[in-house]
Design a protein around this nucleic acid. Structure first.
Lengths: 263, 263
DNA sequence: AAGTGGTCTAGACCACCTG
DNA sequence: AGGTGGTCTAGACCACTTT
């Protein structure tokens, strides 16, 4: 017996799904297609409506559930608003990079999601023996080898933050990180599925920048900034990264969704 | 012809869904049931696994899609982690009574959880016609009636923040809010289950306090503070509250858990 | 009344993990 | 190999908004 006897034919519209990457949800591909076909193309301006869900189903040959997953994703990233009985309206885009603080996700990824780029400057990568505060925050013995990565983040050529990352050498080989680094230490860690990186605990502190940091970022001393002090952990609770970031709110927007707790 | 002829019988397992509130997703009810039946009951301890999705489908008489919606919600709030091929594991709850910015929870509730008290001072309650920025943030027509509540928050007698809340009169009668208010507008809204308050979207901005605000809080002008600008919403996305808070980090610690996104 | 999004179901097949 | 979660489909009915 062949598998083709076991049910009705699936997905009649697209060609045989042979080459589809199974690891990427179809909804994400549809989301990207809608973004390209209607939003970034300018076919639908801010304030105007996307085609109806039924139309999108026909156009892309997918089920309504899949189209709705795509639309939900677009709504979560703030590109559209969906109203019952009305349809999906494209929203005007913010000039700033919106960062969902509650998501363990690099600035690079956020920026790319909205079609912008961030760069690094004054990049300084070194291997060090951690002790004191760093050893405590990494939960390792003083003297443990670690990779230290420091840099300025640039947005449209403007300095927007200073970031310092430590990763113990026994978490991931420094050479590996350096080889795979393209702006974000977190992205390297997330890409290594075997590490099981799951969450970070992050302190959020408003600070007035001291003279040295202000010079780095090209602002006056005393400028208000957001200091994020973060321990990235595996599912088992092992610390794999201590990250400190001083960020200017000027070109960055930090937001988060606070959810009602039921437990 | 009756509607019952138009398709196969739906939901055979549960009793007639007569009294179900149609506005609450079934997935949310299943999520609450799972929480009560397995997690808060202690039937499944941290580190142990929930029943399989198929078992949960049978137990609650719902489809797998619905069970998965419930599990996704539990994962988003950090109660469980779901792994392909492994199942759903209950997570240990954070020891530190998180002043968790990611939880929709009043300062009063947080303080009570750690055995402290917060008080209000300079309380100012008024009915106003909102316009401009306030109307925009509340998503109402300019001129709409709303309740405005302003006050200083005190922690151990020390001023720690200035909070401003708007609630449109057609969300909840101003008299009702005033009657039930005991320090937190959010707590009043959460207590009204019929409002279906579910989440808030919160902007997090570091600011240097201006002279007026600094005087209110008894600090020097230019002191760094955290400005939280928040729209509290129902499950349907209706804004029920616009809240602004200027908070001193001195006596408060803001932290949050950033979670990896799998969707 | 018509059209749109909102929710839910039953079933199918795929990918991952563990024996 | 068997069981688990991951994804997707087609179809049905409900609720909201506009005509």
């Amino acid at each position: 017996m062949t598998t083709s006897e076991r049910g009705p034919p699936r997905r009649p519209v697209p060609p045989p799904p042979a080459r589809r990457r199974t690891r990427r949800p179809l909804g994400d591909e549809i989301r990207d297609a809608i973004t390209a076909d209607f939003i970034t193309s300018g076919a639908v301006q801010a304030g105007e409506r996307l085609p109806t869900e039924a139309d999108l189903c026909d156009r892309y040959g997918v089920s309504r559930v899949t189209v709705r997953a795509a639309l939900r994703s677009l709504q979560e990233t703030g590109l559209i608003v969906v109203r019952q009985g009305l349809g999906s309206t494209v929203l005007p885009q913010s000039e700033t990079i919106t960062s969902g603080l509650d998501r363990l996700c690099s600035f690079e990824t956020f920026a790319r999601a909205v079609g912008r780029e961030v760069d690094s400057a004054e990049l300084d990568i070194a291997e060090v023996d951690v002790d004191g505060e760093a050893a405590r925050r990494l939960a390792v013995e003083p003297g443990t080898r670690a990779l230290l990565v420091q840099r300025v983040k640039l947005y449209d050529g403007q300095p927007v933050g200073w970031i310092v990352d430590y990763v113990p050498a026994d978490v991931l080989a420094p050479a590996t990180i350096v080889r795979e680094f393209s702006g974000s230490v977190l992205d390297v860690l997330l890409a290594h599925a075997e590490l099981d990186v799951e969450y970070s605990d992050c302190d959020v502190v408003p600070v007035a920048l001291d003279r040295r940091m202000a010079v780095r970022l090209g602002v006056r001393a005393g400028t208000a900034a957001l200091y994020l002090d973060e321990q990235t952990c595996t599912r088992q609770g092992r610390v794999v990264n201590w990250s400190q970031a001083w960020l200017l709110p000027e070109h960055l927007r930090f937001c988060l969704r606070r959810r009602r707790q039921y437990a």
